[in-house]
Amino acid sequence: MSLLQSLKARDRVFDFMAPDASPVDVRHGPILYMEDVTVTFDGFKAINNLNLTIDDGELRCIIGPNGAGKTTMMDIITGKTRPTEGSVWFGSRHNLLNMNEPEIASLGIGRKFQKPTVFEALSVFENLELAMAADKRILPTLTARMTGEIKDRIDEVLQTIGLVSLRYQPAGILSHGQKQWLEIGMLLMQRPRLLLVDEPVAGMTEQEMERTAELLTGLAGKQSVVVVEHDMGFVRSIARKVTVLHQGSVLAEGSMDQVSNDPNVVEVYLGADDEEAA
């Protein structure tokens, strides 16, 4: 239970969680701002006129049936997919549409994929080392040395994600849930301002889910977190504000109770909710 305790006072225990002097300017409102975004694949509109605002420090859950455009939305934010129309701003200073993936990542947007992707040939420790916020240009990377400070930081994250005993094991041998945590750990090493988490609890046991919920709710406040999830039980347990996507645009937004009573949402979505929550 040391984890729980430490999470309660995390900003004092974990210095890496203390707010960074970030280049992101959030004085004038939200940290992420998507306006009228449309993406077309071969005539099919995966995202249709999407408007979404995420406030600084907010924990937002995004739900929606398959094909609603959740993953595509994340692809747009992280620079993997370019929208056909619209604009995406990070803070009020950075136009994300003009940047590539590493630039966006170094601005402080971290992403966890739906399918956990860790570097399987590298050890857990090395996975975290690579993810750590540092000078990621070539020569500094070549000459980088392991210092005590870095080691401590990695150790702390190892504790947070509960993988201390597996630190020297190659990530390839981790279980599915452990890989999910390692990936979250890698996000933490990046000290992101905005975390995009795609289906964090897919394939997890009840217990693992609980721990993940703690982890995510603990992060919110200092960092903005966007969680895309299918599992309604899990969403209910962490959500403060929920956005429902349908056919590439926002169908409803509000607290979990608000959206689950929205007649539109009930019509297109909540039929499936019962099944999934069961």
Partner: peptide, 8 residues
């Protein structure tokens, strides 16, 4: 090119 999600 093949377009669409599958190709992405």
């Amino acid at each position: 090119p093949q377009k669409g999600r599958a190709a992405e």
